[in-house]
Amino acid sequence: MTTAQPMRSDDACLAAITDVDRQCFDYLRVHGPASRAGLSANIGISRPTASESARRLQQANLIRETGSCPGQRGRTPQLYDIQGARGHTVSLALDHDWIGLRVCDLSRGVLWERIDRSGTPLTTEQLVAASRTLVAEGHRHASGECLAVTCSVADPVDPRTGRVIDMPNSPFAAGHIDVGSAIFDRAPETLHVDNDVNWAAFAESRIGLMQRQPNFVYVFIGAGIGAAIHVNGALYRGADGLAGEIGHNRLAPGQTLVQRLIELGIASPSDSSIDTDRLISMFDTRPQDATATAVIDAIAAAIANTVITLNPGALVFAGRVFDSPAFAEALRRAVSHALPRPIEMTQTAFGAQAPLLGATLGAAEQAERYLHLRIDPPAG
């Protein structure tokens, strides 16, 4: 869902931005300050073209003069850099026992960040109060226009409305609130809310192991279990945002995966949350018993059914349970055994805060799109 923004006085300057200007901006964002000659040489454009791009980007207040190149003969070249103070982005991640907020400037530099860990599941009221406090504090450290706001929640999100879907017996409090009005005081169309596993997979596709793999499935196992589906370079959310809810896959004899895990004593009957400590201990103890085997078989069946249906090029595993080498290896073996042909399987390197990382990257791209610096459609 894209962000609807008010009209600005610099719309004409932004509308004049060209593809070459976008290349210059991207070069400065990735590599840091450069002269017009440096832009010309590294992007492969003429010096007059580089000069014109620098002029347009300055007029739009997107880059600034930041000094000169020392030790140069003749006329001293002027250096240009991103005008970070042009605006900022805000990204919030809500999990069952932690909340994180990150504020970044236009150059994607972090202005302020905080992670609050509760240690125990938060109620809806606690989640809202803590989130509003974080957001207010974050805005005090920001400068310029708020260019984009993103939020990660541990429940499905309807891609048409941006509203969180309250799933039956969900262990996460976010499903019971309207994120836009309760936390940000913003209309739903002015922020981008998505599921935490989708945001984590987005990070994997942008700066992680899947940058060159357009088709993959990202499987997360923590207090909840779910997957993100990446098809042809974009997230696939389904008609209602429920794509990837593999905990609801039906296994023989008709149970869902979550129901099977409840029966095996790994998930709570009251809220379906998975006891990750017990799950890890089952596989760190030798020899593994029949219950451990049944747990692996159930999870592997749900994953294998998803892989067989979608035919992705790779599987990415994430979640605290994969810190157990024994669990990770047992699941890989079981999934491989259930598939008709091999598939690449790997484990993310981003850790528990991957959803916040993905939301931050999503906010940066959304801000650049808003400023005419990106012309690609929103991810997914």
Rank of each mutant, 00 (worst) to 15 (best):
Q72E: 12
E204W: 06
G100S: 04
S35Y: 13
T306N: 01
H31I: 03
I43V: 12
R260K: 15
E189P: 06
I17A: 04
Y236D: 11
H31C: 07
G180R: 01
P287N: 01
L339Y: 07
T276P: 09
P287R: 02
L371Q: 09
V193A: 03
A294V: 03
A4R: 15
Q353R: 05
H337G: 01
S118A: 15
A174G: 05
H230Y: 15
L191K: 02
T276M: 11
D194W: 03
V295N: 02
A239E: 14
G241K: 07
F220Q: 09
P214K: 02
R140Y: 00
N195E: 09
T2V: 15
G119H: 14
R108A: 10
D26L: 00
T124E: 14
T293P: 00
V164L: 08
D323E: 15
G226P: 09
I296K: 02
P70M: 02
Q259I: 11
R286I: 00
V90S: 06
A301L: 14
S324C: 13
L14K: 11
Q213A: 00
L310S: 01
G351K: 04
D323Q: 15
F220D: 02
F322R: 12
A154T: 10
W199K: 05
N169T: 09
A50I: 10
F202R: 11
R73V: 12
R73C: 05
T124H: 07
V135S: 10
V217W: 03
A201F: 08
S53E: 14
V179G: 01
L191M: 13
I266W: 13
T348M: 08
H96T: 09
G247Q: 14
Y80T: 04
Q78T: 15
D81C: 12
N61E: 11
R56E: 06
E65A: 01
G109H: 07
A54T: 15
S35Q: 10
F216D: 03
T348E: 09
A15H: 12
L191H: 03
H141F: 05
Y236N: 10
F317D: 07
F220K: 09
N232D: 15
P48R: 09
S68F: 11
P159F: 03
A12L: 13
S273G: 06
Q211E: 02
A234T: 13
Y80G: 04
G74N: 14
V103C: 07
F220H: 12
V30P: 00
I99P: 02
A41C: 00
G241Y: 05
R73K: 13
P377D: 13
F172V: 11
G351D: 02
T150Y: 15
T124G: 08
R160H: 14
R332V: 06
N311P: 00
A15R: 13
H31G: 01
